[in-house]
Amino acid sequence: MTAEPLILIVDDDEGLRRSLQFLFASAGLESQSWDSAEAFLADLPAHGPTRPGALVLDCRMPGMGGLALLRLLGERGYPLPVVIITGHGDVRMAVEALKTGAYDFIEKPFREQHLLDTVEAAAGVSRDWLDRDARRRGVAERLARLNRREREVLERVLEGKANKVIAHELDLSIKTIEVYRAALMDKMQAGSVAELALLVALHREDAARG
């Protein structure tokens, strides 16, 4: 995953929106903007972002406000770090934003470097999230490739059972168990049982959350 980050901006003020895009462009950051939360949601890819990035969100907007959009993205588990821009001294809003899952908040008026640093940091987080997501997707795909016998063997291996015990339980020969075990380790691209356990744990955590 080496895609360039894309900064997403939602602000009802066109002048500010364009100036932010200009600022990001000067820092070599590609950006895209929407004038309302509703418009942004309409364009949002359902399966999540394909490029790392950050959402810069004005907290006060007509219609669906910034906070409402943040809440909605959180509920969907949408993997996009959100930087909320709040009014000067609006502590209540800042706290609310962080509680709702914002990556960070920036108080107006802000120093541009601070905004750029925050946005870039958020983009880094986004990249990690994308990487992990990709890994999760890999585990799921590998698990999907296992056949029924291989999944049964996997369960028992993860339970720490020896081949002999597994052969007994499945009423198969030890030789056969060893073949299945080698195949699933190969399919799961796991070098060791510990690594296998980590991959499956990652998947299960994901499944439990989703």
């Binding site: 003020d13 500010l16 100036s19 200009f22 000067s26 107006k108 008026p109 541009e112 470097q113």
Partner: peptide, 24 residues
Amino acid sequence: AHELNQPLGAITNYAEGLTRALDR
């Protein structure tokens, strides 16, 4: 104040962006 802050903030953004571009 908000009305005025909007264009002022935008101007600052442009100015910062220009500075960066020139610095590069």
